[in-house]
Design a protein around this nucleic acid. Structure first.
Lengths: 251, 251
DNA sequence: CATTTTTTTGCAAGAAAGTGCAGGAATTAA
DNA sequence: TTAATTCCTGCACTTTCTTGCAAAAAAATG
């Protein structure tokens, strides 16, 4: 049984506030099985440490600082939650996972839960930060930051990838076609993606429907080099990939 | 059953904490057949080594990695603008600059303006992102991400630093003392700081007044290894550093 | 093997923290 | 305004923590 002490309760409440949830004192009193006074005291404590803004009846989040980078990434499009959930599930048994950069994979990183022995390897500072905030161990690949996608690229990065072995690599895609395979807009990033796929036993692409059926400038991986595809496309689109021997998880 | 000694018990508890389990002092006292005092002492020991966070009744994982970095950034503890401006000025003529991690240096990175030929090298994903958003070229050093300050550490990282030459390294400090020098809370980070200083012709410390006159666990750089200090301390504090031959820029 | 030193352990008294309750002030809604 | 909540303050009670101390166990030493 979990401890029911001010520290733990407030930790839980803090998380909720960070997600933008409003807190009602009377409700958490029932939930944590404490008197409403104690619930109130928790909120007072959170307010003192600047994590909540108390209002009559409960508390609301203090205006989020809205990390600038998250804004930039999350501003355009948020990938479907079901697809992200499917991706998280597919990593359930993995210990060492290589995560690519890009907004879709970043959403996956944010959704990961800490687990003993789980290690994430990534060339993307955004993904690295997201994992760290979730309490997951991270190895960050170094290199020149590519202006296009904001991931490490270059010889150093490729060399580091050559020296490690992972169970699964999850790649984002600029474009994804059943015949052409996975392709990218930027040559350096394309090379790094290739190395990531090489370093892993299993390579999975994570691509929402907007990427399906299109081709980008640099061909990164042949369809045969892909083991899985997680997407939210139409059944007919998925069938084309399945015909190439790719395990498709469609949501 | 293994030997019932502190080491064994604490190892078991450590594993549980890593799995996110809450530990109740009274329960482990029964389980290990020791008094509650001994159980408490085990938890104290775990807390000392940073593996547990003690709360009333027991301990919880120190998990909320709540990257001190992220917390500081989100919490709006902004370093004084004048100090940051002074730091920006001091880099006016540099082409290749090594920037450390930490909230203070991060503030500096956010204030940097793009300039032809300027290249930033950093082990911190936060600093890397800040520079990229400012349109500055970045080389990100790779490595395991240290839980404490969220910077790359480890052999890989040190090796990369050994292979490059920069004009100036700007180091953040956990603590800064005129006699003891620059010191850090974390050994890995301390080693990386040392390597950063070695890789640069000039080493400058950026430390607000709260860091002055204090010492952290790991001695990183002797005062003689420092070329400059940018701070917002009192004149008397600064004089102590100047007496050691350090060029102090006080605001 | 005997003895010294260090570590570990349990105990007890006082300090501190957490909790619930009651009475009165403040705020909101009708 | 009145009535109903909700908040704040102080207080008593319980539980847990800290601290100092001495005995037991383990390790090191000669």
């Amino acid at each position: 049984m979990d401890l029911n002490v001010p520290d733990t309760r407030q930790q839980i409440l803090e998380r909720r506030l960070a997600d933008g949830v409003h807190i009602v004192a009377a409700e958490i009193a029932v939930e944590f099985d404490v008197s409403i006074d104690t619930a109130r005291r928790d909120l007072i404590s959170l307010e003192r440490s600047g994590k909540a803004h108390r209002v009559r009846g409960g508390a609301i989040p203090v205006m989020p600082p809205a990390a600038p980078m998250q804004e930039k990434i999350a501003h355009g499009k948020r990938p479907p939650a079901a697809m992200i959930a499917a991706a998280v599930d597919s990593l359930a048994d993995c210990k060492t996972v290589i995560l690519d950069g890009g907004s879709t994979v970043w959403a996956l990183a944010k959704a990961l839960k800490p687990r003993a022995g789980l290690l994430i390897v990534t060339p993307s500072p955004w993904v690295a930060i997201a994992c760290m905030e979730n309490g997951i161990e991270v190895v960050l690949l170094g290199g020149r930051l590519s202006g296009h996608g904001g991931v490490s690229v270059g010889l150093d990065c490729e060399e580091q990838l050559g020296q490690l072995a992972a169970e699964t690599a999850v790649l984002g895609a600029c474009a994804m076609d059943a015949d052409f395979g996975l392709s990218s807009d930027n040559m350096d990033e394309s090379r790094v993606k290739k190395m990531m796929a090489n370093a892993a036993v299993k390579t999975v692409a994570l691509a929402d429907r907007t990427k399906l059926g299109s081709r980008a400038r640099h061909r990164t991986l042949l369809p045969t080099a892909l083991d899985g595809l997680i997407t939210d496309g139409t059944p007919s689109e998925c069938a084309a990939f399945q015909a190439k021997g790719i395990m498709v998880k469609n949501v």
